[in-house]
């Protein structure tokens, strides 16, 4: 009896093992052999992961290069447009190598100088508008004072109303990255949103400076002034260009 029972158990075990072994080859829901070739092993997954990481790093580098080229393209396109508007001047693009740490008004140093033809009082611009003026030069560098500085006085005009004034920075406005149009007449018609450009003279005319804001009364000078928001984000600049008259560009 006991032997018969044991024999039945062994037969049942054999049948169950056969069924289990057959389940490996049964085409139900994609059954496959142990360590099947169709499903990836861990080593294959690790290798694929490593390859994908490398590809991702490469793609990030390419994206970085693309964004740099795109930014350069936009910048140079703006300078090209400005060059077309100012045919009597040559634009020398340069990189800003250092913002002056002791300079409160956004002054900086660029990597072109006398060897490249840069002169003192040459305007410094970007495709968006006027940045400032060269105030010091050396062989291969120049220092720029921006339009936020009170040291700079530039003749400017309101394109809409025709009112002229003097662009000059003020310490009170500097913190908000703004400058001021001063020496306006009492009956001026400068309105908020008007475009302010250079009016010529020492500096080329028609270079965009910024947009007019509110009118304030300058108690110090007993004068009206208009707050100007520059068209250029001066403190975030990385590149700019020096404008030189064409006949003096290569002296």
């Amino acid at each position: 009896m006991k032997r018969r029972k044991t024999r039945r158990e062994v037969i049942a075990l054999g049948i169950a093992l056969t069924a289990a072994a057959l389940s490996i080859w049964l085409p139900l829901g994609g059954f496959r052999l142990i360590s099947a070739a169709a499903s990836p092993t861990d080593k294959q997954l690790l290798a694929e992961n490593e390859a994908l990481r490398q590809e991702l790093a490469q793609r990030r580098q390419e994206l970085n290069d693309y964004l740099g080229c795109k930014e350069e393209n936009e910048r140079l396109r703006g300078l090209f447009q400005l060059q077309k508007q100012q045919p009597d001047y040559t634009l020398l693009p340069a990189e800003i190598v250092r913002h002056e740490p002791l300079e409160d008004f956004g002054g900086f140093v660029m990597n072109i100088g006398e060897n490249q033809g840069v002169k003192i009082n040459a305007p410094v611009v970007t495709g968006e508008g006027l940045v400032g003026v060269v105030t010091e030069t050396s062989a291969d560098a120049c220092r720029v004072t921006t339009i936020l500085s009170p040291k700079l006085k530039i003749a400017a005009v309101d394109k809409q109303s025709g009112d002229s004034g003097i662009l000059s920075g003020m310490a009170a406005l500097n913190e908000r990255n703004q400058t001021a149009l001063t020496a306006l007449t009492e009956k001026h018609r400068v309105a908020k949103g008007d475009l302010i450009v250079t009016s010529g003279g020492t500096y080329p005319e028609n270079i965009v400076i910024g947009t007019a804001g509110e009118v304030q009364f300058d108690a110090f000078n007993a004068n009206r002034l208009v707050v100007i928001t520059p068209a250029v984000s001066i403190r975030r600049l990385t590149h700019a260009a020096v404008m030189l008259p064409k006949d003096k560009a290569h002296e």
Binding site: L17, A19, A20, A21, S23, I24, F31, R32, L33, I34, S35, A36, S39
Partner: peptide
């Protein structure tokens, strides 16, 4: 599971 047969056996 991807590895067939182990648990059955």
């Amino acid at each position: 599971l991807p590895e067939r047969g182990y648990y059955a056996l």
